Amino acid sequence: MEDKKNIINIEHVTKRFKVGEGEFEALTDINLKFKTGEFAGLVGPSGSGKTTLLNIMGSLDSPTEGKAIVMGKNISDLSHKQAAELRNRHIGFVFQVYNLLPVYTVFENVEFALILQNIGKAERKKMVMDALEWVGLENMADKKPAKISGGEGQRVAIARAMVKRPEIVLADEPTANLDANNAHAIMQTMKQLNNELNTTFLFSTHDEKVMGYLERIVHLEDGKVAEDEYVTKTKYNI
């Protein structure tokens, strides 16, 4: 039965990868719950398991043991088609490399996610322009990625993630390739979208700037939860 309060339930999740003749345990017995509208982060050094956990929550991977229940669906039970459907309709992704398609305009890059959903042209146009307006790029709709800055490129990636109004956005080191000013601008944009749309945002990061916006910080060390910290007063208020 779906837990109406928790949009993500991680129950005794362990993840192992084959390495040569043996196995590497990337996650060990993780138990976490995330409520709708949280602005939270998985924080830890490289190799702590944060990206692995984010990938499981995004249905890009599944646990070796335990359950990852996202929007009432057990990730391990989903077929490839069902997992793709969950991602296409309900989960937005923002990565440190924003992977914009260079031959398409900003508008077309954002629109692509909607074409997969068979949404009509007029409705697609409105949804894309709304998303570009959210990130302050409505005047750059006709530009190609080569003609915009790195910070603008990451904002296009946020618009692409948000255009379908997903319930969950997973952001893996989204500020890694940005200078401080652009990093703050990106985080402020995401926090405003979190406030306005009640979208659940989960970050994987070790960037102090990102941590300054988070309302909850899950510290991972060697694939285990070392601390689960709720922040009563964030460093950067929005």
Rank of each mutant, 00 (worst) to 15 (best):
N55A: 07
L60T: 07
S62Q: 15
E65M: 09
E65Y: 13
K67N: 15
K67C: 05
I69G: 02
V70P: 01
V70Y: 02
M71L: 15
G72A: 10
K73A: 12
I75N: 06
I75V: 15
D77F: 01
D77N: 13
L78R: 02
H80V: 11
K81Y: 05
K81L: 10
Q82G: 01
A83S: 15
A84M: 14
A84H: 01
E85R: 04
E85G: 00
E85N: 13
E85M: 11
I91R: 00
I91T: 08
G92V: 12
F95E: 01
V97N: 11
V97A: 12
Y98C: 12
L101P: 00
P102Q: 10
V103H: 03
T105D: 11
T105K: 03
T105M: 10
F107G: 04
N109T: 10
N109K: 05
V110W: 06
E111D: 14
E111Y: 03
I115N: 09
Q117K: 13
N118V: 06
I119T: 13
G120E: 15
G120Q: 13
A122P: 00
M127E: 10
V128Y: 04
M129G: 05
M129D: 02
L132V: 12
E133M: 08
W134E: 15
W134L: 13
W134M: 14
G136K: 06
D142V: 06
K143N: 11
A146Y: 02
G151E: 10
E152A: 03
A157I: 11
A157C: 11
A157G: 12
I158L: 09
A159S: 12
A161R: 05
R165P: 00
R165I: 02
P166I: 13
P166A: 13
P166E: 12
I168N: 09
V169C: 12
D172L: 10
T175M: 08
N177M: 08
L178A: 11
D179M: 09
D179I: 14
A180I: 14
A180N: 13
N182D: 14
H184C: 01
A185G: 07
A185T: 14
A185P: 00
